[in-house]
Design a protein around this nucleic acid. Structure first.
Length: 120
DNA sequence: GGCGTGACTATGG
DNA sequence: ACCATAGCCACGC
């Protein structure tokens, strides 16, 4: 693992986060820490959240709602339009949320390190 | 360089 | 399961 040491590092980290989040299959979820590990910057889980909040304000095809914390809790809900938009999006994909947490977490969890498959 | 902050995480009570 | 604590690190002031 390493840290950001240059603008180039930062850029590649951000792009990697986008790529990984886009690769999350519908109906599955993953965590900030898992994404950070997959990018090679294992201790930048907090930055992953920051990046996702940035992309949330502009139109994009990044399913940021499929990223929750390591316990399956919807800690990013405040970055969406309404307080329950994140929950609604997940529910629409078949993911059940109860008390702010993803049910069936172990099965719904998608590990980018072992399950990623590049599309096309 | 110090200090507070945050869509984090692991651990211990 | 819940809460507190302590690491973590880029960023802005």
């Amino acid at each position: 693992m390493r840290n950001i040491q240059s603008e180039k590092d930062k850029e590649s980290f951000i792009l990697a986060v986008y790529d990984i989040v886009r690769a999350i299959p519908e109906g599955r979820v993953t965590s900030y820490g898992a994404i950070a590990k997959a990018t090679g910057f294992a201790n930048l889980s907090r930055m992953v959240g920051k990046i996702l909040s940035n992309c949330g304000s502009e139109p994009n095809n990044i399913p940021a709602h499929r990223v929750v914390n390591s316990q399956g809790k919807l800690t990013g809900r405040s970055a969406f339009g309404s307080s329950d938009e994140m929950q609604s999006l997940l529910k629409a994909e078949g993911i059940e949320i109860r008390n702010d947490k993803v049910q069936n977490w172990k099965k719904a969890f998608w590990n980018p390190l072992t399950e990623i498959q590049l599309l096309q």
